[in-house]
Amino acid sequence: MSKSNTISPRETAASRNFGTMLKELDWRRYVIYLGFVVVFLFFAILLRDQGFLSPNNLLNIFRQTATITVMAVGMTYVIACAEIDLSVGSVAGLSSVCTAMALSQWGLVPGILAGLAVGLVVGSVNGALVSLLGIPSFLVTLGMLGIAVGVAQWITASAPQPILNDTFNMLFGSGNFGPVPGLIVWSAIFVAIGAVVLNRTRFGRQVLATGGNRNAAEFTGINTKRIKFQVLLISGMAASVAGMLYAGRLQSGRFQWGAGDELSAIAAVILGGTSLFGGFGSVIGTLFGALLIGLINNGLILAGLDSSQQQVVRGAIIILAVALARKK
C-alpha cells in the first residue's frame, strides 16, 4: 500500500503541510527537551563567570544526578502503569545501611547482595499489597516509606556505617570506569536498559497498556496484577541500587541517604513527559527530567542561593514545568 492512499484520520481535504504537522505534534511530551535547553542556556549566560560551563562542573551535575536518575528509571515504569512509589528514597537509605553493615561483617559480595535484597523484599511487599490486596499504591508505599527509614535508623542506632572496602566504593560511585565516572556509567546502563525494555519488549508494552486502560489490557489477555507487581518490584530494586550508589559515593551507609528523593524522582519522571495518569512513559525523557533538576540545583548553588531559597525556586520551577506539560 503506497503512502499516498493511507489517509491519516486527522488529515482533511487540506494538504498536510509543515504547519499542520507542527500543530499535531504533541509538544507537551517534548517540552522537557525545550525546557532543558532553555534552562541550560540561561545558566550558561548568567553564570558564565562562576564556571558553570567548565567540564568539571558539568560532570558534577551528571554525578550528582545519578542516584535520582536510577530511581527515576524505575519510577517511570511505576507511573506509566498509573501507580506511584513513595518509598524509593527510604529504600535507598535502608539499602545503604544494609550494604554497609553486611560489607563490614562478611565482605563485598554479601554486601551487594544485602543491598539488592532490600529492594527485592520491599518491592515484593509493595507489589503484593497493591496487586493482590488492591490497596492503592499511594498508601502502601507511603507506609513503606516510614517502615524502611525506621528500620534503617533502628538497626544502626542512627549511627553512620562507614565503608572501608575500596573495591565497593570504586564500583559504586567513587571510582571511574576507564575515563568515565562510574556514576555516569551506572546511569547510562539503567537508562539504556530501561528505555529498550519499555519501548521494545512485550513487558514494556504491557506496562503501558495496563496504565493506559486496565480493562482493555485485561480483555486483551494481559495479567495486569502481575504487571503491577512487577513495576513495583522494579522500582524497589532500582531504589536499592541507588542506595548502594549513595553508599559508594559517600563511603558510608546512613539512614538519611535518599531522604526526600522520592519527590525528585517523581518530578523527574513527570517533567520527562510520562503521564501521571498512566499509559505513556519515556525513560529518555526521565533522564532529561533528572538532569534538569540537577541543572537547576547546580545553577542555584553557583548563583549563591542558600538551600532554603533553592528549595523555593526548585519547587516553583517544577510546578511551572508540570503545568506546561499537563494534560489538556
Binding site: 503501558l208 497498556a209 493506559g212 482493555a216 480483555f219 503521564s275 498512566g278
Partner: peptide, 15 residues
C-alpha cells in the same frame, strides 16, 4: 477497549 496512549498498530497486536 483500546489503550488510548498507544498507536493503532500497537493496539491491534497488543500482547
Amino acid at each position: 477497549s483500546l489503550v488510548p496512549s498507544l498507536t493503532v498498530a500497537q493496539n491491534i497486536f497488543l500482547a
